[in-house]
Structures are given as structure tokens and as C-alpha cells.
Design a protein around this nucleic acid. Structure first.
Lengths: 190, 190, 190, 190
DNA sequence: GATGAATGAGAGTTCATTCAT
DNA sequence: CATGAATGAACTCTCATTCAT
């Protein structure tokens, strides 16, 4: 049954995320992973035909997180929404763990050049929505286009998260974002 | 003779930097490297006991670059100096190449937990100097401490460079920094 | 019920032959096979306890083909019969496909050393019948025994078919046999 | 030194041929091979970057054998030369062993479609030379072109050798060729 | 100083087969 | 009868590093 398959896959994935968190993606060897999961390599490949699939899923997950958990909390104040967006981005990284953050912040692009980091991903469109509405409400008055502002925001946020991962998660990322992201916010508000 | 040894090592290093630039650190196999260098693996290990040493040297290099090439160009205008700092950081990445940038922006932390990314590295002290003087000259009026401002600046700059590397160097990084860094500069000036 | 079992097995076999034809025996993975057949691996193993069984059946099939399709077309002219035999052998290979031909021409001997390539197989007895009658009718006057002539004929025919398979079926095998087998026929007629 | 490398490679190759003979090419696993050779897998790959190379070499070897050992024994009698050619082909197979013969008679073509079984290989040109001269001397009067005759001859010889390998080398191949090849010779002489 | 042959653990992945449901 | 999740030994090949020459 496909449902059963999907359920088992999802269950394994949860455990796998924890292990990626502890060990990192590249360092996580399939054999070791299977040992920790208590399954055979054959079973692993039954559910994840390629190791790389694990990596891809990290990207999809943040999209889901933002669509399901963050978006509903948006209000009419777009500056506040942007701040929430930033905080949640950090929160997600902290929940995901250092190693996984490192991996999905930093891993070289995949050969196929797929759309994983594309600006067209749901999370990017969410961000553009905030900025768009903010502009029309007069909350953001900087001269850059919505697209440019979104990209700048993502660049800065990824900068924060990378730093946090580089320093092995040795501080409270959300707090740092809450403290320093306003510098960027000021710039965006013009 | 130690001098001869050091000279040879430095000469090899120059060539190695170019290769890391082209191929990236991880993808650069020792055997291939030796082939391109026209030396045997034995000789390579004579000068660089571990491959990882090459990686460490990438960090030291940017310090030298900033001390020797950038600092002399500083003027009395600290905001201009900060802008120059940001542009040169991007310039350095573009010269260093995509793969090497990716590597030294993004690579997982060093096992030994050394001081490579430390805030005490020369490049950080250079940046703090700009901000320190800027504050006393009244050019930067934001409420954050010098250390905090420096760190925020580095976070943003690494964000820019990571993005560039993630997108395979598909645009002019210096131009993008020149265009968007002012958003952050505005925030820092308060 | 055994009859139902046999019927299903035969039906599956027909489809399997086509797939072996397209993909070859070795390259045909059980999982893929099952996918194409629309059955589960469990079901496959219910009907064919070992994959190797498929391979064995390829040999039995040519015997059936010659007994049911070729023999009825024999006439009184044994030289013509021999030519027909040769052409049909090629025709069978072309119908069976390159990969399957390769496989049943060339595959290493079966572990169990069974009688699959034995001179006692029906197809060999058919050939010997032609030569026997041809000798008594004075059509074949060469000095070799019937058994020897039959064996020589099979060697040559397998040579043709192997070559065709080696060249990936890049030419009309029947035409080539029709053109070149007479060289051998001449030798056999003495 | 390249000479040393080539010498070692050749020495290993000799041992490898014996093992291919015993075990066959496909069944000969690299690990097992290394175990028998007393070398590490790394060393194996140092000398033979791909396993497939072993297979390629089997083809080159027969070319060398014919050029160095057989050609010098040719005389003015081209029918005798053709007979010698056939016998030596069998002799080579017997020396090479059953499994290796099976392998190089029968293995499916390599993906790259290289020239291993090409009619342009030295051994083919040798054979064509015999037939060419035989024609001009009036020894071969059949109506087929030289190219066609050569190809027919190879088809027949490969038929003999395949049969021998299929029957696990259970008889004297050279003797069988000596006895039955004349049937084909008759056909070629027209 | 310089060489490069040798190492070997370890990588990701495959696939015929089993068996509880 | 039928399923398909589970198995795990086995596969080819990689590559940083060592060390006798």
C-alpha cells in the first residue's frame, strides 16, 4: 500500500533528520545511517533510491514549514511580518540543527542545477509577498525593486544562519537575528 | 636548506591556489594536483604533510590580501573605507574563484577548532578599526558596539559571497555588493 | 489448481520472452521484469522459483519451434531442407532478438551441466534426419558421418548467429545465411 | 620508470589470464583477483584503471600472436596458409583456455562500440591477405569477394571455438578444426 | 630531495531472493 | 494466491597517505 510506504518513509525521514543534524550530510555514511536506523541498506534504498534525496528533502521541508506554520501568523503590519519571517528562519535552523543547517546553507549546487535554491521556491514568494504589500502600504520606501529586496533579505538571513552554523550553534540564533536584523530592516524601510 | 624549502613551497602554493580556484578544494584530488604541478605525490607530501593544510592556507591568504592591498587605500572617510572593504571582499572572492569561495565560505568547521574564522583574525581587526574610527568621527551613530557592528558586517558580506558561490558565480559580485551593501551601510550609520 | 497454474505460467512466459528479447537475459532485472508484467516479485517467484529458469526455457523453445513450424515444411529435396533448416535457424534468432540470441548462443555453460546443448536435443535429431536421408538419396556425398556433418552444420550456424548478435543485429541474418551457407553446403555435398 | 611499470603490468597480466581462464571474465571479481595475485585493489587499479581493460587485452593478444608467431610460418601455398591460420586460431584458444575463449568469443559488445571485433583488426587483415593472394594465384575460385570470404571464414572459426568452449574444452579443438575445416575450405576453393 | 608503487578501508549502490501479511 | 517490504552479501572503484628505493 502506498500509504504504508509513505508513512514508513516519513518515519525514517524524521530519524534521518536527527542523524544529519548530528553528523552532517556528507559525513553521514549510508551504512552507518542504516545501522542507526536498524534497517538494511537494501531497505534504505527501497525508500530513498539515492542518498542525495535526503539532501533535497531538507529544502522542501523549510518551504512546508513556512507555508504551514509561519504564514498563518502574519498580520497587517508588514514590517512585523518581515521580522517574524526572519526570526522563524532562524528558529527553523535551530530546530533543524547545526549540521543540517550547515548542509543546506552551504552545500555546493547540485550538478543538475535544479530549482532547490531558486528564487521561485515557495519561501521566496512568501517573502516577496510581504515586501510587495509593504511597499504598497508605504512601509518600505527604499528604491530597490521587490525582487531585489527579497534577494537581499535572503542573503542577509543566510549570512546569519551560516555564521551560526560555522560557530557550531554556540549562541541563540533567534536572539541574534532579533537583535541585528533591524539594521537591515532600517535599510529596507529607507 | 630551510630557505630553499620555503621558497619551493611558496612557489607550489601559488600554482595550487590557481588549481583550487578552477576545481575547488574538495574536488581537487592529490594525484591530479601533482600531475598538474609536475611533481610526484611523495614530493607533495614532503611540502604539505596533509591535504587539509591547503585549505587552512586559504584563510591566511585573505588576511594578507587585506593587509597588503586594501589597507593602504584607506582614507579619512570611514564610510568610504567600509564600502571599499566590502567591495574588496567581493573582489577577493571573484579572484579566488567560485569553488574556493564556496569552500572557504561554507566548509564545515575545522575539526581542530582552530582560529581560522575567529573574530581575532587580522581582517576582523581591520574592520573593527574602520568602525571604531567611524564612531569617534560621528560617521556611524547606530547603537551597537563596534564588535557587534563588525560581526554584523562580516555576516552580511559572507551572505553576499555565499550567494554568489551558490549561483556558480553567475553575476558580478562586486557590482552587486556596490549596489546592495549600502542598505546595510544605512543601517549602520543609524 | 495445477492447470490454472500452468496456464498462467505459460502466459507470463510469453511476455517474458518478449522482454528478454528486448533487454537480454542478464540485463533483465527481476524487479523490472515484474514491473513490466504487472506482478509482484513474490508472484514471479511463485511461478519461477529461480530467475535462471527463464534462461533454460529459451533452449526448449527453439526445439518446439523447429518441431512445430519447420519440420512440416520439409520436402523430398534434402539439400533444400538443409537450406530451409539453416534459414529458419537464422529466422528464429531474428525473431528471438539480439540479446536473447547472444545469451543462448554464447552464455557460459549451465552450472548443472544439463543437456541443453546436447546433440541429443530434438533440433539435432531433426538435422541428423535430413542428413541421413540426404546421404541415402545420394545428395550428400562427403566422407564424414551423419553425426559429424550435423555437428559441423550446427557449428557453422551458431557461428553465423553469434556474429549477427556480436554486431548487434545490424544486418539481415537470414539473407546472410541464404548467401553464405551454400559455401558450407557445397562442402557437405562433397 | 615506465619500463618497470610495463614489466610489472605484463607480469600481472600473465597471472590474470590464467585466472580468467579458470573463472571466466565476468565471474572474476576484482577482490578475488587481487587476493590471488597477492596485491591490493589499489594496486590493481594502479595498473588497470578499469576492469574492462582486461577484456580488451584479450583481443589485442590474439592479434600479436598471429603477427608474431603465425605469419612467419606462411608459405607460398595459400590454401595451406588458410589451413594453418585455422589451426593456429584453435591452438590459440586452447592455450588461452576455455573460460577466456568463452569470454572473448561470446561477450556482448561493449557500449562504446569500439573496434575490438572490427574487420579492420590485424588478424582480419592477415586473413584477407591470404585470400587475396590465393585468388590471384587461382587457388580460391569461389565467386565471393575477398572481404566476404574472410568474414565467412571467421564466422566458421568462431563457430568451432565457441562450440569447444561450450563443451568445456572436452575435446582437442585443433584436431577437430583439422578434420572439419576442410569442408569449408572446399566451399571456398569453389 | 624526489619518486611512484603500494595500500586498504571505505564509499554508494545493486539485486536475486525470502517471508510475514 | 498475491504482495512488496526487507534482506545483506557482493559489487566496482576511490583516494589520502606511506615508504622503500
Amino acid at each position: 500500500m502506498t500509504d504504508k510506504y509513505q508513512a514508513r518513509r516519513a518515519a525514517l525521514l524524521e530519524e534521518i533528520y536527527e542523524l544529519i543534524d548530528k553528523e552532517g550530510y556528507e559525513a553521514l555514511r549510508v551504512r552507518y545511517l542504516c545501522g542507526r536506523l536498524g534497517i538494511s541498506t537494501g531497505t534504505f534504498y527501497h525508500y530513498f533510491p539515492e542518498k542525495y534525496e535526503l539532501h533535497q528533502l531538507l529544502y522542501r521541508r523549510i518551504d512546508e514549514y513556512f507555508q504551514q506554520r509561519v504564514q498563518p501568523r502574519f498580520t497587517d503590519d508588514e514590517a512585523a511580518n518581515l521580522m517574524l519571517f526572519a526570526e522563524c528562519y532562524g528558529e527553523y535552523c535551530m530546530q533543524t540543527g547545526v549540521a543540517a543547517t550547515r548542509c543546506f546553507m552551504a552545500l555546493p549546487l547540485q550538478p543538475q542545477g535544479d530549482e532547490l535554491i531558486s528564487d521561485r521556491r515557495p519561501i521566496s514568494r512568501l517573502l516577496e509577498g510581504i515586501l510587495e504589500r509593504g511597499k504598497s502600504k508605504g512601509q518600505f520606501r527604499c528604491s530597490y525593486s521587490t525582487r531585489d529586496c527579497a534577494r537581499y533579505t535572503m542573503v542577509v538571513l543566510r549570512g546569519f544562519c551560516s555564521d551560526w552554523a560555522k560557530r557550531d550553534g554556540g549562541y541563540d540564533l533567534v536572539e541574534v537575528i532579533r537583535r541585528f536584523f533591524p539594521i537591515s530592516l532600517t535599510g529596507l524601510q529607507g
